[in-house]
Structure formats: C-alpha cells, structure tokens
Design a protein around this nucleic acid. Structure first.
Lengths: 226, 226
DNA sequence: TTCATCATTCGATTATCATCGAACTATGAA
DNA sequence: TTCATAGTTCGATGATAATCGAATGATGAA
C-alpha cells in the first residue's frame, strides 16, 4: 500500500456531479467561460467558481484570461481519455443520468467526442471506411490502407501535416451510446473538420450535438457506401 | 447538460482513498479477500466491508465466494484502463501519495501492471525490443515485426492462441514512474508469463513488485540487448 | 458441539464539502 | 465618471459519507 501516484485525488475531482458536468461540457473541445460552465453544471456562479478553483488547483483544467472572461479548457488529452473510459464504464454498468433530456436522441445520433465524430453516425463512418477498405483493423489496432491514403488526399486532408503531430493517425474509441467503435485519432478529427468545411454538418451551440444538413447527410451516406 | 452516462458516480467510487488503495491492489491481477483489501487500504474490516459493498453495487468489482472467504476482482479491463489513465494524470500533475514507503524503489524498478511488466525494466524491455526491431512503433501504434513473430515463437509464446483473443497483441502503456511507454497487450502479458515460467522472475506476495533472480536479470539484459 | 476466523450489519460520531446569499473586485461600456 | 457584467471571496447551512465499536451471522477446524 501507499504505492504510486494518488489516483483518489484525481478521481475525487471528477467524482462530483457538478464538476463532471463541467468537464463533460469541455469535452466538446471549445473553451468555455466560468458562467457557461455554471449553467452546464446547473449551479450558481459562486458554486461554479469554487469547483473551478479546485479543478485548476488539481491541474485538470487550464484557465486563460481574456478581457473580463476566464476561458477554461481541459489540461491535456489524458483528461479526455479518462473521461471517455469512465463514460464507457458508466454505460456498461448502466449508470445513466436520471433525466435523459429531449436532446438525448440527437446526441446518440451524432455528437462530437472532443474533436471527432461519435454516435450512430460515428460508428457508421467507421464501418463504412472499413467496408470500403480505406481503413483496416487488425490486432495492432486501426490503420489507414494505401487506398485510404489516396482517399484522404482526394478528400482534402493533409496527411503530411497530421504526421507532424505525435498523435496516432487512427485510433479506436468506444462509443458509449452505440457500444461499438468509432474513429478517433488525428485522422478522425480531420475528417470531422472537413465535414464542417464542406458544409455537411455544423456544431450546435451549447451542446455536443452535430447536426447534418440534408445534402450533407446524403453526401455522408455516399461516403460510407450506403 | 444531463447528457450521456453518469461519469460522476463511477469517478466518485474511485475517488475515495481507501477504495482507490483497494483497487490499486487489485491491479496486481490477483483476487484478494476482504481482509486483505482492508489491510491494503489501511482501514478496519467493517469500513472495508462498507466500501466493498459500494464497489460491488457500482459493478466496479466482482465478488466470488469460496469457503468463508470472499475474493474480489476488478469487473473488467476497462477498470484497469481507467486506473492506468488516472495514474498517468496523477503522475503528470504531481499528485503522489504523501508517504512513499520503503518498497518504492523496488516498485519503480519492476512491478506488474495488471498482467504485464512495468517500471524501469518494463521500459527497458520496450526499448530493447524496439532496438532489436522485434516491435515497431508508427503512427498507428505498436506492432510485432516479422522478426518479432519469429522471436515470439522461439521464445515459447503461442501467438496463434493469443490471436484468439479480441485483445490487441501489442499496446503502449504509459509508465507513471518512468514517464515512458512500456509494452502492454496480450503479447506483453505473455512475455511476463514466460519470465515467470523460465524462473527469471517471480511476484512478491502482497505487492505488485516483480523480483528478478541474478541469472534471470542477466538473461533479461541479454534479451533486451544490453 | 465448541471455538476461531471471516465478513457483515447497526448505530453513533465526526468531518468534509457542496451549496448559496451577500458583499467585494475587476474589467469594459456609455 | 457611472453603470453593468464577470468572477471571486466569505460565511453559514445542510447533507453526505467515512470511520469505527459492538454485536451478529456464516463457515470451517478441532
């Protein structure tokens, strides 16, 4: 006992409902102000301020001052990873929130998972790219095929730039709502960016929902080979 | 807000020091009894029982009754993953436990990370296999090379059997003590098993420490090309 | 059966912490 | 300057939950 790093301190910081709501909101990838986070968490600004001070002291979030606002972001990809894993666990053991709001169906359909597409359409994307043999999955994980490289270039994705990053190009990410994998990694993020740029989809404000336009969805269906 | 699975409930279960200590102990891979876990956590049996009831209700651990003992194990690999990620975060932000016991140096040298080798020697293994080009790391992660496959067969590892499993063969796992990657996945686990079988090393009881014999260490050094 | 050990339940205590009202500071706009 | 908004600090309140002593049930050993 008394071995190693202190998990409890980190876990306790994620273990309060108000803080968990804030962090989940920050998984959207956008920096949010203290008041926005207070609303997300459903608490008063005073309470939110106290929570944010704790999260900041624990180096879970990083504040950035701009004018009279303070914008908060998650302190690193490891935080995202931790939240993702815990969502997977919570989903597996059936720890869903008591009230599932009206936004729930849309969320399960298409949402942003920090920077890539998740939900049913995220899973469809993964399956579609696999079926078209643009990505392949083996025991070592997911990888882009030669055909996939050609596709990426044709689709307007600069693979060379992505490779600059230390981050893996392709990564599986367990989708808590669909119980299947969707595509993460820098390639997954780049795909979603292209969907935005092409006008196929856009982020709903104040939410993780990704809404596709009619044409956008049709193009998407063609892409995944439906 | 009010979207998705309830992270907070899971995180709160991991967020108590006593429970975190218990779970860390279970990362050793062995099933432990309630009293053993009470000792690990540094609390009385009554308190431990209360914690274990909570963990069981939250499906974080699974009890198995045997005689008058109750043996507990982690409920799935996702729990291990969550604990690992949180250790990484805790280490990054410097949340180490206040008292670092006398076992600390040995732990940092060689310990079991659920089922594979971690610590300095775990990192040395990863580096050694890379240098000998038995494994390779690219943007898609770690993979066994052709030479690596030959090596595994010669070393007494049944890759065909490992492939039965859905689990990835090779996986990087961030070592919290060395701040570098060591080798996880079913191949990583199989390697450690062989070290045990060959008598190179053995598990210390009541701890995650892996202790190498003198000859064992020498063989290990040859293996990693020192 | 009798005894010892493992584990749980109950009850009481204690400490921690989330919460919010009120007051205060800081920044920007008019 | 004056006003409005963003955010924090302080203090009080209330609820939750961790802890352990004592008692109870359950299993195996003698």
């Amino acid at each position: 006992m008394k071995e190693g790093p202190d998990i409890a301190r980190v876990a306790a910081l994620l273990g309060d409902p108000a803080r968990a709501n804030m962090l989940t909101a920050l998984m959207g990838g956008k920096a949010l102000t203290a008041t926005e986070l207070a609303q997300e968490a459903g608490v008063t600004p005073q309470t939110a301020s106290s929570h944010l001070a704790k999260l900041e002291a624990g180096q879970i979030v990083i504040p950035r001052k701009q004018g009279r606002h303070r914008y908060f972001t998650l302190s690193g990809p490891d935080i995202v990873e931790a939240l993702e894993v815990m969502m997977g666990i919570a989903n597996r053991v059936g720890h869903n929130r008591v009230r599932t709001g009206p936004k729930d169906p849309e969320l399960r359909r298409a949402r942003v998972c920090y920077d890539h597409l998740a939900g049913d359409m995220g899973v469809a994307l993964f399956d579609g790219l696999s079926k078209r043999k643009l990505i392949k999955t083996d025991l070592n994980g997911v990888a882009l095929t030669d055909a996939g490289v050609d596709f990426a270039n044709g689709f307007g994705i600069d693979l060379a730039a992505l490779r600059q990053n230390r981050r893996p190009l392709c990564r599986e990410c367990l989708d808590w709502s669909a119980r299947q994998s969707h595509l993460a990694g820098s390639f997954g993020a780049a795909l979603l960016d292209r969907f935005y740029d092409l006008g196929w989809a856009r982020r709903m404000s104040e939410s993780r929902i990704v809404r596709f336009s009619a044409e956008g969805e049709q193009k998407f269906r063609e892409l995944v080979g439906d």
